[in-house]
Write a protein that binds this DNA or RNA. Structure first.
Length: 393
DNA sequence: TCTGGGGTCCTAGGACCC
DNA sequence: TCTGGGGTCCTAGGACCC
């Protein structure tokens, strides 16, 4: 199984781990004995590895289908319009699955249907029932109905815990019940989102394939600390680091931000410990992508937030109110000024930091931080670091 | 005493997703 | 003792406009 950041909770489990009754999201310390007794293999999360393997799978999918929406690190929607005229969709799905497995070693499941919501449900079935061979084609109405009756409504994409509870009270228990429900009632009792979900279950496509990724509206960088932080200087290092990371993400999006929020908090699980959680936001005079501008404001915000005498467990930085380059309309009477060469300096920093030859950072971020998150069981970055290359003997 | 109709923008809170 | 991180969308309500 794989752990969350800071080696805190279980966030992914193999079939075997699930069979042993390991639940999603449990804190590791609660099942320490079980892990030892049953010899469960435990790994810290390794985002460098996952991102690289994801890219390999996605680029392969893009070669196999004309239009692809990369929906998340491990999911994609493929437009199969017209494909059915050339080859049976079920067979096409099996070919894609085989090719991905052969070229990347990643096992995938495939669901095929006229709408995204039905495709997700088909995928779920492909994953759940080994007899399908990992591919389910839901093109035929009769097969759609069969599966809808089988699936509890909480398995439907877009129906979470709260909606499941409310739908249950209305007697809507299966995906089929939701598909049959009155659209006007759904709209009135819930929202347009639930109405769309019901329409999609009926084969009416309401959600388009989004092949170009939309620009982000906010960027967050937040982390729990490896150990509790009790002094301001250390907390400041963390906030400076998170600010730098958020700014880096912002620049990789080619955007500029006009608002920054800093938050800090103590742990919430120990009722005997004094708790404190707070956030503060500042608006910048002009949009910026310069780490120096953002850091300058972030440390002032931290000054406002800081309270002595607490054991802090987490801090975070959020950027919002974004502008594309050249879009912002400055004020007439007090136009802000970008620092000279701001863009060049940031580009140089980002380039060095991505070159693999070394790192540069701001002094405020500190060196050898004590607060850095725990990753005690990290697997090698097999595909992105020379020293970690897989050895075949 | 009686008080219209049609809009936009912003924010907080709630819900969902991976 | 130890409990993750990063996003989006929708709606209601308040404030404002003509």
């Amino acid at each position: 199984m794989v752990l969350s950041n800071n080696d805190g909770c279980v966030v992914a489990r193999s079939r075997e781990a699930k069979a042993l009754g390991i639940k999603m999201g449990v804190p590791v310390f609660q099942i320490r004995d079980q892990i030892r007794q049953q010899g469960i293999a435990v790994f810290s999360s390794n985002y460098a590895l996952y991102a690289d393997m994801s890219q390999r799978v996605m680029s392969l999918l893009e070669a196999l289908a004309p239009r692809v929406e990369v929906y998340s690190i491990d999911e994609a929607f493929l437009d199969l319009s017209g494909v059915g005229n050339v080859v049976a969709l079920d067979r096409f799905g099996r070919e894609v699955k085989a090719k991905v497995e052969q070229w990347t070693g990643i096992p995938v499941c495939i669901g095929i249907a006229p709408t995204k919501t039905l495709a997700k449900l088909a995928n779920h079935a492909a994953k759940q029932y080994p007899a399908t061979g990992g591919v389910v084609d839901l093109t035929a109405k009769t097969r759609q109905h069969k599966l809808l009756r089988l699936m509890p409504v909480n398995e439907v994409w877009g129906i979470g815990r709260q909606l499941t509870r409310k739908l249950d009270a209305l007697g809507i228990k299966s995906a089929y019940d939701l598909a049959q429900a009155n659209l006007k009632t759904l709209r009135r009792s819930f929202s347009v989102v639930v109405e769309r979900t019901a329409r999609e279950l009926n084969g009416e496509s309401c959600l388009d394939l989004e092949t170009v990724q939309a620009a982000k509206q906010q960027i967050i960088c937040s982390r729990s600390f490896g150990e509790r932080v009790t002094d301001k200087a250390t907390l400041k290092e963390a906030v400076c680091s998170y600010t730098a990371r958020a700014a880096e993400k912002l620049r990789s999006e080619s955007q500029y931000t006009k608002a920054i929020t800093v938050f800090i908090r103590t742990g919430m699980f120990n009722p005997n410990e004094p708790q404190y959680s707070n956030s503060a936001t500042a608006v910048l005079p002009i949009p910026t992508g310069d780490t120096r501008d953002l850091t300058q404001v972030a440390v002032v915000l931290l000054d406002h937030l800081w309270r002595e005498g607490y054991r802090y467990i987490k801090a975070g930085v959020m950027l919002s109110d974004f502008y594309a380059p050249g879009v912002y309309q400055p004020e007439l009477f007090k136009p802000g000024q970008e620092r000279p060469n701001a863009k060049s300096l940031m580009t140089v920093m980002d380039t060095i930091n991505h070159s693999g030859k070394g790192k540069v950072w701001f002094a405020g971020q500190g060196v050898n931080p004590a607060w850095i998150m725990k990753r005690g069981r990290l697997s090698p970055a097999y595909t992105t670091r020379w020293n970690d290359l897989l050895k075949v003997r």
